[in-house]
């Protein structure tokens, strides 16, 4: 058996052995869980966040977690609870969504705090809408320990009806959310859900993050930001990459890759992320 195969298998075994599940008590019977892979201390720790309604086990995130852990980086891959104690599964579109983006930012803050207690340098790495949530976090909570934000396939909570309709929907939801008593759940198209069911506050929190707000946040944050996008990611349209570049953030385009960076583009993505990590001072 070739020596390099033995070495790879040995490293994989070490990495797997070092992976551990971390639970975080969020109060009100809510707990959050994350996969924690301690790495070399001299390397920055990476907080890797999944996309909308996904978990740490989504393919792109899981692959990055393994690869970065293998590269020696400390990786913390939390699963946002979305009001589900110790959530383990992707939350269905038809589930009763009561969680808000603000809740998510609080959980991210808890995990950043948990990680900061162990690592002085932190890089936030988000995939898809996770990138939006991390962007929102660094915008609201600037932190020197956070050395970089890497947004992979960043995308807004997409509302296909158009921006005018988004605005009308936002206004409608605000009206519902402000009404007295327990508001009734609403159903509407959002992101990849053809019909998501949730409270008005929940949908409103996500729907407010339009592409414009994302681009504005990108321009406003002081944390070094890199967006890695696939040239064939058609979810945001062909102008999205150019608009990202206009924010001043570094944009890395992986040719031929789609939104989920499948296949050979996994390695391109890893190389790009490693490049960004290695580029840190």
């Amino acid at each position: 058996m070739p020596k390099w195969i033995v070495a790879v298998l040995g490293l994989l075994a070490i990495a797997a052995a070092r992976a551990e599940e971390v639970t975080l008590d969020l109060g009100e019977r809510l707990t959050a869980r994350a996969e924690y892979r301690p790495g070399r201390p001299e390397l920055p720790a990476v907080l890797l966040l999944h996309g909308f309604l996904q978990t740490q086990d989504s393919p792109t995130v899981h692959q990055l977690t393994d690869n970065l852990g293998t590269e020696g980086y400390t990786v913390l891959a939390p699963t946002l609870s979305l009001d589900v104690p110790a959530r383990r599964q992707s939350l269905a579109c038809e589930a009763i969504h009561t969680h808000t983006l603000e809740d998510a930012l609080r959980e991210i803050g808890a995990w950043v705090a948990w990680l900061k207690a162990r690592h002085p340098r932190i890089v936030l790495l988000g995939h898809s809408f996770g990138s939006v949530e991390l962007l929102a976090y660094v915008q609201q909570h600037p932190d020197k320990a956070i050395r970089k934000l890497i947004g992979v396939s960043i995308i807004e909570g997409r509302y296909r009806a158009g921006e005018d309709a988004r605005r009308r929907k936002i206004a409608e939801l605000r009206g519902l959310a402000s009404s007295a008593g327990r508001p009734a759940v609403v159903r509407q198209q959002f992101s990849f859900c053809r019909q998501i069911q949730g409270t008005p506050q929940s949908l409103l929190s996500y729907l407010q993050w339009s592409p414009e707000r994302i681009l504005g946040a990108a321009r406003s944050v002081h944390t070094a930001t890199t967006f890695i996008v696939g040239s064939r990611d058609d979810l945001m349209g062909p102008a999205w990459i150019g608009r990202l570049r206009q924010t001043g953030a570094r944009v890395v385009v992986i040719e031929g890759a789609n939104h989920f960076m499948k296949g050979e583009h996994e390695f391109n993505l890893l190389d790009s992320v490693l490049d960004e990590l290695k580029a840190l001072p």
């Binding site: 979305l82 589900v84 383990r88 009763i96 009561t98 409270t199």
Partner: peptide
Amino acid sequence: EWDETRQQLAYDEYYPLWRDQR
């Protein structure tokens, strides 16, 4: 083991909806 079940035990405001539909 269903997450939405645990969701109701943590946040039961929409329990009837969960019980009757979900």
